[in-house]
């Protein structure tokens, strides 16, 4: 299992810098927003956490269709299906590797973008923390979409369409926890704990669904 984790990590770092492209997309999306809403710093600092979260959500979806596609292309997907390890665990490990390679850079880039958005230090910390906790859920739920779309020739856009509605709870609790850290009356812990609960729930549901879809996509 660790071998698979390391292999996936190495592949994603080496294969044309997929992680770098995700971060670049994230930065571009966030950088484009002020041109749409205007350079008003007060407004930007108010909507900042939401913008950073939406940017991270879109960038996390960007690389998802590659999660199983490369395996399918070079045939190692069949090997994964045939091996003795439970498929669910294999999928879980692949998701973790994908998260480390693609989503962790987004979390690291988030504070920088928070500065651009004129957010306070507390808000930047809260957004980074919620992204750290929330993005695994995006990867897990996206794995189902990626596994369903693995049989399709051009699945990329369809994965995003299928996964985005399911990702709405993550977005809601991520953003409301970040806002709760800044605005006084709302407590920070409840939405944050619910976000953790959602991530753990998807950590079970996502690999299960993805494994089921992969088995059925095979024959």
């Amino acid at each position: 299992m660790t071998a698979l984790l390391l292999r996936d990590l190495k592949l994603s770092v080496r294969a044309g810098g997929g992680a770098l492209i995700g971060v670049l997309f994230f930065m571009t999306v966030v950088a484009v927003i002020p041109f749409g809403v205007g350079p008003d710093l007060n407004l930007l600092s108010r909507i900042g956490p939401a913008i950073v979260w939406i940017g991270a959500l879109l960038s996390a979806l960007l690389g998802l269709d590659r999660l199983f596609q490369t395996e399918r292309e070079d045939g190692s997907l069949d090997l994964i299906l045939m091996q003795e390890h439970p498929l669910v665990l294999t999928v879980l490990v692949k998701c973790l590797a994908h998260w480390v390679a693609n989503c962790l850079p987004l979390v690291i880039a988030a504070p920088l973008l928070g500065l651009f958005m004129n957010m306070s230090e507390v808000a930047i910390g809260a957004v980074t923390l919620t992204l750290l906790v929330g993005t695994p859920a995006l990867t897990f739920i996206g794995a189902v979409g990626a596994a369903v779309a693995v049989a399709l020739p051009r699945g990329g856009l369809l994965v995003s369409i299928l996964v985005l509605p399911l990702a709405i709870p993550v977005l809601i609790f991520g953003v409301s926890a970040s806002y709760a850290a800044v605005q006084d009356p709302a407590p920070f812990m409840p939405p944050f704990l619910i976000l953790i609960a959602i991530t753990m729930f998807f950590a079970v549901l996502g690999p299960l669904g993805a494994a089921l879809a992969l088995r059925n996509a095979g024959d």
């Binding site: 979409g145 049989a151 509605p165 399911l166 709870p169 939405p191 619910i194």
Partner: peptide, 28 residues
């Protein structure tokens, strides 16, 4: 037939998610 099984997986995952979405939208 393969397509039906794949979309069945997605329908079930969506069905499990509907209560969560409903709850979170109410919270929001």
């Amino acid at each position: 037939s393969r397509g039906a099984r794949l979309s069945a997986v997605l329908i079930l995952v969506g069905f499990v998610n509907i209560p969560i979405i409903k709850f979170s939208v109410e919270w929001w």
